[in-house]
Design a protein around this nucleic acid. Structure first.
Lengths: 141, 141
DNA sequence: AAGGCTATGCTTATCGGTGAATATTTTCAT
DNA sequence: ATGAAAATATTCACCGATAAGCATAGCCTT
């Protein structure tokens, strides 16, 4: 299971070390995709396969558009012998990654954030204890 | 699996480099066909066979029309020793290809778009974050 | 036969990806 | 606390992919 928060650095070639605790869950190659809040989202092959089948099962014009969106916004990544992956330039740009990034485990996927963006996001008032408590209550947790 | 988005240029002779990550999946020769939404669609021989069978299995007037469209609008292409293919003039014209094109992986086929047309297509309101989040929820991501 | 056209291939430059080597930091067991 | 091992950071050198321009060969036209 992918959980935790890790602070890492991109090297000058745009590579980043994957937290060693994540490597077994992710596998040697995984799928990196553009996430919803200006972050990158990495799925193990198994996770991605499930999603892919769902997408391929859809029919109609909207389905074609969704397929184009999700498949075009993803790329296969391979972890090298030193535990690193290259974040392609397009993806670095999309997520606004500087040198310092944060790698976050979200149970079934791993997210990569620019450090500043992550810290800003975590300051969101919706994440204060009271709000968290409210949300939990609404969801019956 | 064909995924990702690559920005390439046609040379003055109408040739374009196929992303190196796609070459294994596509094979040395593939089938280029006119796609839906003013793009070109490239299938590996295997994928094309599947598509062909699907088309041949259909009955009725619409089916006849689709068969004429897709079979007349397809041609075999060969990747040269430098990883390029010639896009015949008719196809360049059909998809409105200028110098800058985008090559998109859509899981089972590869699409070639004029850069401007692709960017316009991807601005569709149905692809705003809220819609995407809905779609992801439905698809179990 | 000469000139020009087209298709194809070759060459070079640039950029990004890859792999190795080493340094540094962290973790863990003793 | 200390040392060993693992994880992460950093740098360098090399290789491969792409872009662009040029060269060659075959073919058509005149």
């Amino acid at each position: 299971m992918l959980i935790g928060e890790y602070f890492h650095n991109l090297d000058t070639k745009g590579r980043v070390s994957i937290p060693s605790k994540f490597r077994d869950d992710l596998g040697g190659t995984f799928v990196l995709s553009k996430g919803v809040n200006d972050c990158l989202c990495a799925y193990s092959k198994e996770e991605w396969e499930g999603f892919k089948e769902e997408l391929l099962g859809l029919r109609g014009a909207d389905a074609r558009m969704l397929r184009r969106f999700f498949f075009s916004g993803a790329t296969e990544c391979e972890i090298d012998t030193q535990g690193r992956v290259v974040i392609p330039p397009l993806y670095r740009e999309y997520a606004g990654l500087g040198r310092e990034v944060v790698i976050v485990g979200v149970s079934n996927c791993m997210e990569i954030w620019d450090k500043a963006a992550w810290e800003k996001y975590m300051q969101n008032p919706a994440l204060e204890s009271a709000e968290i408590e409210n949300a939990m209550e609404r969801l019956g947790l």
